[in-house]
Design a protein around this nucleic acid. Structure first.
Lengths: 216, 216
DNA sequence: GCTACCATACCGACAAGTCGGTATGGTAAA
DNA sequence: TTTACCATACCGACTTGTCGGTATGGTAGC
C-alpha cells in the first residue's frame, strides 16, 4: 500500500475512534491512549497526524458535521412527495438508529457542546455549527410541510429546533435510563405533535365549527 | 459560631460550588481546586469534609435530587384546580428559570448522566434517579390532566418523559446557541403540544363533524 | 537516500490526595 | 473560675500517579 493511503487510513481510524470513545466517556474524559488503542495505532502515529488532543477533537467535529450532513442528505426519507411524509420518514430514520449500545447512537456534537460551551476551545463552534446545520436541514422539510397545509413557513425554524431538541433530550434520557426506551417514547410524542401541526386542515381546528364542504 | 455549624456551612458551600462549576465546565473537567476557590475554602478543608472528588460529586447529586424535588413540590404552579393549568404553570415556571448565564439554569443531573452513563461511578445512579424522580413528579399532573379530559392515564408516563426530554434537549440547544432563545422556542412548542393533547374535547377531534351541543 | 509513517522510551506539568501541624471552642475536674 | 484536655475544623506544603506531549530511532515505498 502506498504510504499516503496508509496515512489516510490511520487518520480516519483515529477520527472514528475519537468520536466513539468521546461519545461513550465524554469529551474531557477521553484520553489519547484510549483513542489510539481503539484505533489500533500507536501514540507516535497519533502525533504524526495530529498536533494535539484538541486538534483531533476538532477534526472529529468537522468530520461529524460533514458525515452527518451527507448521511441525512442522502437518506431515502427525502424522497416522498408529501412534505409531511418526508418528516415522518425522518423520524422513522432516527428511530431506526436507536439500536445497540447508547454510545453508538449518541451525538458527538451534542456531547462536545455540553462539555465545552463555556470554554473557548476551537472544537465548540464546529460542534455548535453541526447542530445548527442539522436544524437548517430539517427546516427545509418543515417549511415545505407548513406551506403544504396552508401555513406560512414562519414557524419552520422553531419546529425544526424543537425536533432537534427532542432528539438531543431523548439521548440524555437514554443515557439516564440505560437504553432507548424513553427515547422511543419521545419520538412517538414528537411524531404525534408533527402530525397534528402539519396535517393539512380544512378550514380550522375548532371542532365546534361545522364544516360546510366536502372532502376532496 | 460553634464548630459544628461552621463545618456544615463549609460543606454546603462546597456542594453548591461543585454543582455550579460542574454545570459550567462539565463533571470531569471540574477540578477540586476550582471548587475550593469557588467555595472560598482550602483544599485541606475540602479533604476534611469529603473523602475524594467523586465523593463530593456524589453528595452534590444527592443534594440536587433533594433540592430540585423540594423546589418543584413547593412551587405555586401546583395549586390551580385544573390539571392542565398546573402543567402550563409548570412550563411557565421552567421558562422563568431561563434567565442569565446558561450555567445557572443547566441541569447538574443531566450533565452528570451524560458524562458518566458508561462508567460505574456511584454518582451516576443518583443523577439518574434525580431525573426519574422528576418525571414521576410531572406524571402526577399529566395523569390528572388526562383523566380530566376523559383519557386513561396510560400515557401519563410517556407524556412526562417527553416533557423532561424537551427540558434536557432545550438545555443542550441553549449551550449550542449560547443563550436561551432556542430553549424558549422549544417550550413554546411543548406548550402547544400539551394544550392540544390535554384540552378536554367535546366528542372528538374531527373538524368535519358538527357539534350538537352547547359549551358549558 | 529521501520522505512519509510508525514505534517506543521518555519527560514534565498538573492535579488528586496525604499529612503534620495550627486554631477554635466545648467540657469537666479541681 | 481556672486549667487541662479533647474534638472539630482548617491550613498548605509535599508526594505521587497520570497523561499530554516530545525525542529518537526504525522501516518501507519512491
Amino acid at each position: 500500500m502506498a504510504p499516503r493511503e496508509q496515512g489516510e487510513i490511520s487518520r480516519a481510524k483515529l477520527i472514528a475512534a475519537m468520536t466513539d470513545v468521546a461519545r461513550e466517556k465524554g469529551y474531557h474524559a477521553t484520553r489519547i491512549e484510549d483513542v489510539c488503542a481503539a484505533a489500533g495505532v500507536t501514540k507516535g502515529s497519533f502525533f504524526h497526524h495530529f498536533a494535539s488532543r484538541e486538534d483531533l477533537g476538532l477534526a472529529a467535529a468537522e468530520a461529524w458535521r460533514q458525515n452527518t450532513g451527507t448521511l441525512f442528505a442522502e437518506a431515502e426519507f427525502n424522497h416522498p412527495a408529501r412534505p409531511l411524509d418526508r418528516l415522518l420518514g425522518y423520524i422513522a430514520f432516527r428511530r431506526a438508529m436507536l439500536t445497540g449500545p447508547v454510545a453508538l447512537y449518541a451525538c458527538y456534537a451534542g456531547t462536545v457542546v455540553a462539555e465545552t460551551y463555556a470554554t473557548d476551545l476551537p472544537v465548540y463552534p464546529v460542534a455548535s455549527a453541526a447542530i445548527a446545520d442539522h436544524i437548517t436541514f430539517i427546516a427545509r422539510h418543515t417549511a415545505a410541510a407548513l406551506q403544504d397545509c396552508g401555513q406560512p413557513p414562519t414557524r419552520a425554524h422553531a419546529l425544526s429546533t424543537f425536533i432537534q431538541c427532542t432528539i438531543q433530550g431523548a439521548l440524555i434520557l437514554a443515557k439516564a435510563e440505560g437504553d432507548a426506551t424513553p427515547a422511543l417514547a419521545c419520538l412517538d410524542e414528537l411524531e404525534r405533535h408533527l402530525k397534528h401541526e402539519l396535517t393539512p386542515k380544512r378550514r380550522n381546528h375548532d371542532p365546534r365549527q361545522a364544516v360546510l364542504f366536502e372532502e376532496p
